[in-house]
Design a protein around this nucleic acid. Structure first.
Lengths: 232, 232, 232, 232
DNA sequence: TATGAATGAGTGTTCATTCAT
DNA sequence: AATGAATGAACACTCATTCAT
């Protein structure tokens, strides 16, 4: 680089990293990569939830994630693989949260009500979950099928429910013969359906489905429904 | 035609056949606007149900309808308008079927059970309905909003339910204070959710959700759920 | 037409013709056909003038002409042939009008001014003419080339101009050596350009080119330009 | 790199070459956004000039530009926006060229003649300009309206003309009272019309309008026309 | 690790034209 | 003479994905 005319060249520019407590190159790189991946997944979740798998735009995801589009392909391989990753994470997230409810520590009826409340609130606070599940079912669960982790987490969840029902029967607060799967589906259904179909329901029933009162009323109705279903 | 024939213009006037009573007119396969429209709607319903609004392909619809793509635009204006037409028809269809149940003629509890059965069976036999509704909610009911006919049909439906609950309370078979809308939503939810999410549910619960036994079991469970919910 | 069930049949309906003085079927038909052709040409002129050959829509022409689209093809063969017919008529129309000016009956300078005024006013009252000519030139006069009638009318027109200039020179009011074609082009140009480019000119010169004053000013300017050009 | 290497991010920085002074960097054919844009504009100018806005084909433009069709939409948004860009550039180009004439440095009559010659030659060498302007007027200057840059350049141009006429009057070589806008329009008109309508004119006047002699004759005629118009 | 440029195969839509009556 | 239905080729525009740096 003597007196020669500066030509169209590529320079490596070192920029100091603000992040404290990092030592060495290796770690930094991984952490950056991890952050980028996370931003992409976050953005993808929103986009997929909003527009479905077919309607989602890779460009949009990249922009929202403030990441280069190429990174999406680098980290996830394809749009569909990205969808799968997002979906898997969403399922693991709810299953994890359910485990944390610590239902075993409560009396059966309280535990059940807690689950109903939790389910409702989780859907309410994670509306993307619902839309993602809808999308996945439109695609006949083709992506979920591939995930072994989901299957394991699911078994644990179903087992917990089985245990809860058994305990309730033994303690005489639940009537016998209730199928855990059916109950689970019903608990999900009465919350999920209300929320996912709130737009068409608003027209059919001419109500604001998302008004505070309306939401409270629904939760109460759902708890009532489940309790009447299980009690002796 | 006596006198000088008043100079005149000749028009060809097509007079529609009264649906039945057609004589020697069996052809009209092509060149029948109404039939073509119907074929397009039929094909569109399938395609939209299978792939959603974004995922549906106009080419595919045209092919399936054995119609020219141009006809779709001629009759419906755009892909989205076609979706709207399909959706409106789907809603009117279920509302019409509900009216035909003649619930007023039955004792309240029997009427309610009949409605639960009907709802379940309708979803089962018209799986496109569910997927269309899902799609429409993904689009925040933007198409349904425009339909005045749906709103009218909906009011009639809600009114019927109100009447049924009132009657049940008066006759002492239903407990008072049940909100017709909440009940309606629950009746729909417990069937709809089971069916729309049968693919992911099959993985989570490791069951064949569509086996004959499974379907019968679910219907029984749902009837039980509703009955326990309303009885005094 | 006894008691048999009215079936899907075609009826001939005779509607009285308002038009007086018509006798017999034969005549009526031709006149109707002629009228339809005229309506189509009228509508086509507007459409082609507004959107150019490529931008014009056959559907639009049919609708505007209150004619069936099929008629256009019946009478004119194709969109392009229709354009050609319209163009030819437009040219014949202006040439005919020019012949009617009876310039030979006026002193040369008055005759010339009359031509300048006429040209300006013709463009002003027949804005489609200008746009049609533009379109035709975009297509390198491919349609006009085919018209023998135009060529004949053109010769007559150029001859008239030649005669006028000759006469003016002989009478000592025009200077010699002026080329009739160049003069003709200039007379057309200074009016035509102003009007055809009035939209972009309005922006460049920040004026309302079509205001009454502006039009009068332009005409005066053009007359002045031509007179200064020819006078001795 | 002494001490502990402050953790850092590596960025690739592209430094643009100073147009000239490029060393060993002759490639950059593809992967050069600016060059691609330029190629597209070039190709678009040709296509729009040849077929008008409606008649132009985006595929054709892409092919001619040796660019992918997608790039056109990436850089310009839509066919119409591309048209607008092309048009704006065309106008700025002629306005820039006019400024470079340096008319202020010449005696008024020479300056005016120079302008007439320039205008004629510009149209002759840039035939697309004429057709683009025609197209834009067909569209009622809808695109030009949006361009602020054009308006500014136009004012400068009109001002220059005003100044020239004033100077001519003061120096006693031009008669007073001539409107700069009218003169401008006439200067443009007598060249523009001849060239844009050369195809139909060739038929009407049965001449080869583009023969060398014909062009020279027209230029002389135009100079004469303008000079007679302004001289005292 | 990261990026902006580029691409080919679609995708909804339009249009001139023909068919059948 | 007149019509409404139907068509295929084309068109503007989009999108997931890859290339070159």
């Amino acid at each position: 680089m003597t007196g020669k005319p500066a030509s169209n060249r590529v320079y490596l520019v070192y920029v100091k990293d603000e992040e404290a407590g990092m030592s060495g190159q290796e770690k930094r790189k991984t952490r950056d990569a991890e952050a980028t991946k996370k931003r992409i997944m976050q953005a993808a979740k929103k986009e997929f939830a909003k527009h479905g798998l077919a309607g989602a735009r890779v460009d949009e995801i990249a922009e929202r994630a403030k990441a280069n589009k190429r990174m999406i392909y680098h980290y996830f391989g394809s749009k569909e693989d990205l969808f799968q990753a997002v979906l898997e994470e969403a399922y693991l997230d709810i299953r994890t949260a359910e485990q944390k409810l610590d239902l075993e520590a409560l009396p059966p009826d309280e535990a059940l009500e807690r689950l109903v409340r939790f389910t409702w609130n989780y859907y309410l606070k994670n509306p993307e979950f619902i839309t993602l599940v809808n999308s996945e079912n439109l695609h006949r669960a083709r992506h979920l099928k591939k995930s072994e982790r989901i299957k394991i987490a699911s078994r644990k969840f179903v087992g917990m429910m089985d245990g809860l029902l058994d305990r309730g029967v033994k303690e005489g607060v639940f009537r016998p013969g209730i199928d855990a799967t059916q109950l689970n589906i019903t608990i999900a259904a009465i919350g999920y359906y209300y929320l996912t179909n709130r737009f068409t329901a608003a027209i059919v029933f001419e109500r604001d489905m998302m008004a505070k009162d309306a939401l409270e009323e629904r939760l109460a109705f759902n708890i009532d429904t489940v309790m009447r279903l299980v009690k002796v």
